[in-house]
Nucleic acid binder design. Sequence first.
DNA 1: GTGAAAGCGCTAACAT
DNA 2: ATGTTAGCGCTTTCAC
Lengths: 358, 358
Amino acid sequence: MTQSGSITIEDVAKAAGVSRQTVSRVINFQPNVRQSVREKVEAAIAELGYVPNQAARRMGGSRSYQILAIFEKDAVGRSDGRLPLDQMMLAGLRVCGPRGYHLLFEEVDASGQKSLGDPSEQIARALTSLKPDGVVLCPSLEEDPGIRSVLDQRGVASDYLGQRSEFGRLVPGLDDGFFAEAAAEHLLALGHRQMGFVSGHHDPVRSARRRDGYRRALIKVGSRAHGHFISDAPLAFDEAFDLTRAWLTPTIRPTAIIAETEETARAVLRAAQSLKISVPDDLSLLVLDDAPGLSHCEPALTVLHQDYAAHFSQACERLITANTKSASAMTDNKNTDAREDGFALIDRESVAAPPRNR
Amino acid sequence: MTQSGSITIEDVAKAAGVSRQTVSRVINFQPNVRQSVREKVEAAIAELGYVPNQAARRMGGSRSYQILAIFEKDAVGRSDGRLPLDQMMLAGLRVCGPRGYHLLFEEVDASGQKSLGDPSEQIARALTSLKPDGVVLCPSLEEDPGIRSVLDQRGVASDYLGQRSEFGRLVPGLDDGFFAEAAAEHLLALGHRQMGFVSGHHDPVRSARRRDGYRRALIKVGSRAHGHFISDAPLAFDEAFDLTRAWLTPTIRPTAIIAETEETARAVLRAAQSLKISVPDDLSLLVLDDAPGLSHCEPALTVLHQDYAAHFSQACERLITANTKSASAMTDNKNTDAREDGFALIDRESVAAPPRNR
DNA sequence: GTGAAAGCGCTAACAT
DNA sequence: ATGTTAGCGCTTTCAC
């Protein structure tokens, strides 16, 4: 069926009795091709099993049908709130594939490798080698001015996971503050007022933004809990365990705790168990980071998590759309910003109303 | 510093006062360039910040510097023993990047999508579009004859995660039998004889191979436990819980259990707890699948896991090496097969000698 | 609406 | 050991 010696656009042109150019127009969905001709070409394509050669497209034209995702070495992984590269990739693949785009990942290592140069040089190299149509900068690379400027200089389209407003301006990057605020408000709505926050995130800056969001939510309803029940930095398991025990021992204690990661959540849970404090009857526990094992805790832990995969695929989509649009309509990108919230609640068994409300 | 209008091989040639071809030879580490000339060219490259254009290399030559990893939709993820795509990608990137290769991932969906055609057609399309130098077929795609034959026809180099011997012949694919055998032997060496095996793997075929390996190990030492303490199919949490309780209730009961996944491990642990059977004092628990939360169980769970990332990066490496070799030395690939075992023990707290041995 | 010509940046094959 | 000549398969630009 499929022949071995590559089938080129030339072959299709010949088979359809048209010029290469017409075939090119058809495969690129460009105008100025009569319907009848288009159909003839499409038939020839189907019959010959023609598939355009990616490298050749890049060579000839201006688009490369490649989008490049760049992430920081330490920012991806399976613990402490790191990015779920696997899920992001799957989501990205599913938007890129059908549109004929390919997705490439590149890791940059900020911790000064000598031979490779600094991160922006690494990226510059990748850009000239690959000439991607767009790049997705994963957190917290979007905050690196050196990288941003390389991208700008080259005029490479870039996008990010989410955006937030900072000092009244919209800046790229996840809105961790809003996210934590939403988490707190979820518990507030249930009636909780004495509410704790245990940090565990690998990125102290993002973690601090989350604590701010949590504070805002509590201040808004006039609770002073944020003065008492909050860790002032990301904690490891043992620290989180000790801190939680300290919170839960006195009579006045939180009725709900937000744990930033799987690890801290397990610590909180164990601390509660050690004190015979029942979850969720006496204490609600909300985790900001999902993991498969969380559904097999006793009780199963309720999670509100940032949907990194959705954020990522949306970034890919925007990049592709911008690329396609500018090629034809070139409508001004007024940045409609109908971005989703980008987080999702998985309601399991660890969150309930506070005791006095029942 | 770095100029915007692309710097090409031509620019370097001019700057170094040589021909394009000589520059090409230098960047490809080919022979027949005088040391002095080589240095002049290298200097020019460094000065101009030249980086070869990937697409152009593909167009001109026969190598594409791309390797394509293909996986099945349902075979990757974070539960039930699925492939850790993120870790594989990182490992792969780290071998490909330094050698100038790029890594692409492609998902195939066996569950008959109409528009895309069957898996081998999807792959055929990717192959003609990308012309990768090699492809890594992830489990259990290596068992699909249709896919293998597409690869063969096109003469695309392919490699796999591991290999095992089957009916006396070496076939591609992970050696799950040997792996489970090793797990059982680890416990056997500690003195366990009554040993259970709880399946939970998403792939029943691989799971069955593991159970066989476990059986072999027990038979080898004359234990009959494999007749009693083994699930006959992959189990979900509740089933694993019930089965384990059934095993642990009578007087004659296993002193060790191998759980295939995080989920089943948690089920076993809970079953033991519910029966007040202490782990590891009365029961050892060995898990075949790691997850971050496993180190925060009570007790922390000991894991022996297949190192998919290592398998994957080794496959990439072999592909690249073969590609490079054939370009210069073309030594016959006698398949030295110095492949690693490809699994690793993470010794935590859930495995100990059986009670009677202490 | 369609076609012809001219590259894109590189490497293979062949000179020299 | 080095240079020259052809392309690779596509898109762009510009004719028609």
